[in-house]
Amino acid sequence: MSEVIELEQLTKTYESGFFASQDVHALKTLDLSVHHGEIFGYLGPNGSGKTTTIKMLLGLIFPTSGTIKILGREDIDSPDIKQRIGYLPEGAYYPDFLRGDEILRFYGQLYQMGGKALERRIDEVVELVGMGHARRRLMKGYSKGMRQRIGLAQALMSDPDILILDEPTTGLDPLARKEIRDILAGLRDAGKTLLISSHELAEVELISDRVGILYQGVLQTMGTLDELLKDRSTTFEIENLASDKLKALSDAGIDAEDHTDDRVLLKIPASMPVYDAIALCKAHDAQIVSMAPKRETLEELFVRIVGSAEAGTQPETPEPAAAG
């Protein structure tokens, strides 16, 4: 079976205002599925409903309507489902007065682990997140990255099949991000399923197999990165281009993406063969300084989707591939 998490028509409405007079739709009829063994990037700006979805997955809050299936089961609150989920909340706090391994022992006990099995598991996860050297130090002396790693370690205590990570790399320095990223990739390779929510798209882009983009409680798009980022274009860097020429080029279908005093970046659409474009430039006396192929980034896709969602139009994206 490949569907690890399946959300159908999931809706969450908060009541607010006096006498619950106003409804706030945190999540609207969300359909989403996470496949076995993949890293799913769950994206969206702050307040788009990512954390709401995750809390519903964990039974911390309850859906207004719709169904949640985890590992094919609907009783997501039952201990044996929870046993198989590891969760790292965003910005979680760990008490200063405890040592690294004491925290892990506490969480391990919540999984009903104990004795030698618990100690062995602590050794394992500590090694896995690379905290072996600091496990006996008080949390007080931990850096942010170390805390995040301990957080990750506690999520891994029960050797879960599913890992749900809320903003795992936020606020970390580049080196720590890289390390966390490597750990996550390693976990995927070990056959775990990961759901990573983030608003830091570049991070997610680097490791995600599939992404879903959530905005204002609506899943705007979902698919593999290859499917979503089909838009490949080329940019030419042109020197000393007169403005009338620029207009002419624009009429021919080549738009300026950006320009400084003497340089212009031209964006050649994917539909136009590069040689035609070179010919066009040549025809308009545009001096090509450099040319570079460009694949659309997740960020650009995101901005585009969000932009069009705000404008109230359908985003120009390919239809997400039907769930495998």
């Binding site: 964990l58 039974g59 989920i85 979680a92």
Partner: peptide, 14 residues
Amino acid sequence: ENRVIYTVLSKPVR
């Protein structure tokens, strides 16, 4: 406030 409750309740604890 410090979100420890999320990590605890996401464990198999009713």
